[in-house]
Design a protein around this nucleic acid. Structure first.
Lengths: 220, 220
DNA sequence: AGTAAATCGTGAATGAAATCCCGGTTGCTT
DNA sequence: AAGCAACCGGGATTTCATTCACGATTTACT
């Protein structure tokens, strides 16, 4: 019997949803030991359509069982596999401000195969402190830490002005990806992957819809 | 001369980009007093295509000038207008943990017409403290604060278990929108707008691409 | 056993977004 | 004054995403 062949490249929208599935199914499985979950069940909880869920499952090569649903462990395994949760990435956080500390203590990362090795801060007096189980190190150890721990990803939570120079240093030290929480864009060589997390894009959407609702009410 | 008629509804993707434009143009205008900006200039910085930028401008009713570009102040005004930055929204933050405090002191919000009126926390002993210019209040004042300040939006930065009960209380008190940073989904009546900010979807994308790059290198 | 109900799988249709293409306008240069 | 180059505008095309519709499969029930 020929196995279904998952497509080579996952689409952006699918990727975004996979993490939601992973989270939700993981939670459910912990609570009630539920071995199976239906597409419509997932869909209702994530406020989407059941067809979408089935298509996503197909995309990561998971098959469902009619009248039963999908086996939770199969789904989780497939997501772990396709997202590479098992080849643990080493990461560091730059900037031990409130956001950096909050991220350092976020328990989700370790579940997703991301290991935070250090939290760097420009204020040397903070070195040695522990934030969320991670040691704070002075910023001038940046290069040596990247090389010593074979760090692939840096999480940037510094003020906007500091971001670009730091990015340059890290790229030089051999870093391959940057998760940028600083409110500014970064210029990097083409081999390096940057994901820019801009908190206020969410705000834009909220503001727009809140506003539209108001004017609609007013004109009706 | 007939003005161009912007479409009634802005598309999701456009909304996401508008905030980037706003940010970028605002910054540039402050630094070098630059009265005009071309679509390709914006596109390069935000790593997208110039056609996209022009289409977005058309969508919010801004016209450009051939050989010159777009007038920065016109663009900013149009974005402020369409996103309603000028009818200031009152908001509260629930959960004065690290993330809640970080958001309270984020200077961006006030620029975008969002005013944080209070920071509520379940630990009453924290009441009275000031975080990022916002006063911490005990959680049992939730309803009275919402009503007294006519709060339309709540920013939820609490542990997953606490989120749903709080959402229920807030909806009862007349809240109209929730910006949910808790790692769980919320069920609310249909009149209420929820935006779920899930930090790890960004991680999913990074993990996937990092992984794909590795295997690609290995097989070539 | 046989029928009914739930659930998956997928192809077709619709809708959204990105990209391509090219004509039109304006400022700059000479 | 004329030509050029930079930029916009908007139609056409293509890719991506969602929704719809329906047949196929399996379990539960009578």
């Amino acid at each position: 019997m020929p196995e279904s062949k998952p497509p080579r490249t996952l689409k952006h929208a699918t990727l975004e949803r996979l993490m939601h599935y992973y989270h939700y199914i993981g939670e459910q499985i912990a609570q009630q030991s539920m071995g199976t979950v239906s597409s419509s069940e997932i869909a209702k909880l994530l406020d989407t359509d059941d067809t979408v869920v089935r298509k996503d499952m197909a995309a990561i090569g998971v098959r469902g069982y009619p009248r039963v649903g999908f086996k939770a462990d199969e789904v989780l395994a497939a997501i772990r596999d396709v997202l590479g949760f098992d080849n643990a990435y080493r990461a560091i956080i730059i900037g031990a401000g409130r956001l950096g500390s909050a991220l350092a203590s976020y328990p989700g990362f370790s579940r997703y195969g991301l290991r935070i090795d250090a939290l760097l801060d420009s204020d040397p007096s903070r070195a040695g402190a522990i934030e969320g189980g991670v040691e704070v190190r002075p910023l001038d150890e940046l290069e040596s830490i990247i090389e010593a721990h074979n760090v692939g990803l840096a999480i940037l939570t510094v003020p906007a002005e500091a971001a670009q120079p730091l990015a340059d240093r890290m790229v030089n030290a051999g870093l391959r990806a940057i998760w940028n929480f600083a409110p500014t864009s970064l210029v990097v060589p083409s081999g390096v992957l940057v994901r820019h997390e801009h908190i206020s894009v969410g705000l834009a959407e909220l503001a727009y819809h809140l506003n539209r609702r108001d004017t609609k009410e007013a004109s009706e």
